[in-house]
Design a protein around this nucleic acid. Sequence first.
RNA 1: GGGCCUCUAGCUCAAUUGGCAGAGCAACGGACUCUUAAUCCGCAGGUUCGGGGUUCGAGUCCCCGGGGGCCCA
Length: 514
Amino acid sequence: MSEDERAPGGREAAVLAARRASLERLRAAGIEPFALDLRSALGVREPTPLASVRAAFAGLGPDVLTPERRTVAGRVVLARDLGRLRFLVLRDRTGDLQVVAGEDTARFGLLAEVDLGDIIGVTGRVGTTRRGELSVFAEAWAMLTKALRPLPEKWHGLRDPDLQQRRRYLHLITDETPRRHVLARAAVLKALRSVLDRQGYVEVEGPVLQPTAGGAMARPFTTFHHALGIELKLRISLELYLKRLLVGGLERVYEIGRNFRNEGIDRDHLPEFTMLEAYRAWVDYEAMMELSQTLVVEAARAVNGIVGRAPDDLVLPVRGREVDLTPPFERITVLGSVSEAVGEEVRLDRPDLAALAERHGVEVAPAWGPGKIVQELFEALVEPTIVRPTFVCDFPREVSPLARPHRDDPSLTEHFDLVAGGIELVTAFSELTDPIEQRERFELQQRLKEALGGQAHPLDEDFLRALEHGMPPAGGLGLGVDRLLMLLTDAPSLRDLVMFPAQRPASPPDQPVG
RNA sequence: GGGCCUCUAGCUCAAUUGGCAGAGCAACGGACUCUUAAUCCGCAGGUUCGGGGUUCGAGUCCCCGGGGGCCCA
């Protein structure tokens, strides 16, 4: 049942009825309130963007009427009725502009049927009012789309975060922030693709529906394919199929796509999120550091214009601090930074690791090995303190099942995370190519998962089979696009960067209790 | 999963110790030929998220449930 079937509150019903009545009056006057286009009424195919009018007539003094005629269109967001003179403010994707209607305006009387929220078109000469406001002085106008529901409060807009998400269209009409977020996402995606395309990577699309969801530790969403008669999972990472393409000889591949994880929702986690993963043959994780740096810097430059920063400004405000993205990024190691944080040397072979962790407020599960304990120490003590973009290198082998053992210390892996402003942006490896070791690592992960009471996924046998055919040495990275956007826009939550984040349905009116 | 906060008119918000549910915007009727959140006059609008309880009396206190936010796991 939709919320609109609720017994209507008196006022809302009256507002809706008034809009319907206005609609009928327009029809009675021979005006179609849902027009096909601007052509029939105004003789123009598309309106001039409001910002273009502003740009073309900037600097006009007050009380000027130019001979220049323009047709504009947009949503009416403000209306001031002075009797025989009427001011309307239109809003389109580029901005706002005032329209003035008076005795020279055709069908002036019917303008009384224009409500806040209606979409109209106006043709007239461009000029300024006595107070100097740039305006189109309406000669003709057209109702393009009648709005049957009112806009939110014209000054405060939609402040309720629940309604901002549920009715994002209203949020977009009344607040420029979500619009900037949409534009920032588009700019970042374009910048990421541009960097990779320039470097000869091929964009590919792997399967979203997978028989076994691999490449990460996360609970997947499950669905059922009726024709095939099998259960399928929504992917939790892009990794294993991209690596199959490396086996197949593609050498430089990337994918930008949605991953799905059936887990908790908070500021930094959404059930669906956008990942970039890129793989390149013949290189190691050093090359991925370079690539990460380029991707982050180019994305930052692409967003600067949208959020009002200078084009080359790489110093961003993030959660009340300044983050300087100027390369080269810093480098630290997991063991080195944890040692510094606890004030004594931390090694994977220390027998008292668990006690050490507990002393620093990290609760240790019995099934955890030394690698896991060190990783938890890192995430608790070091990661939140990292402000400058920093490559955190050489994670313990135990917690990094897809990365190659470190060339200098086989208890570690060639695995780095890029962290900036306390946000984890990138995970990258020198990829593990040894299929025998890969199987052992997967099996170890399964045992660990079971020991912790979780349900282990079956192994992706076809992936292991592909590795047995031989994957070239390669470096790979995964970049969280939403998190990168959070860093670049200083949005407080990932939910702000996704127009329609997953939500429970609004509480229905007649829901049975219990 | 746990803790804290929150939900009142279409929207933004008030409501003293538990004592007549209010304002602005939007709407509706009217005035106004230069407004800038226009102004002015008038009018109307409520399942106080849902259910139960305590009480002479509940928006307010208690219990159960729902939506949202923040923090923790």
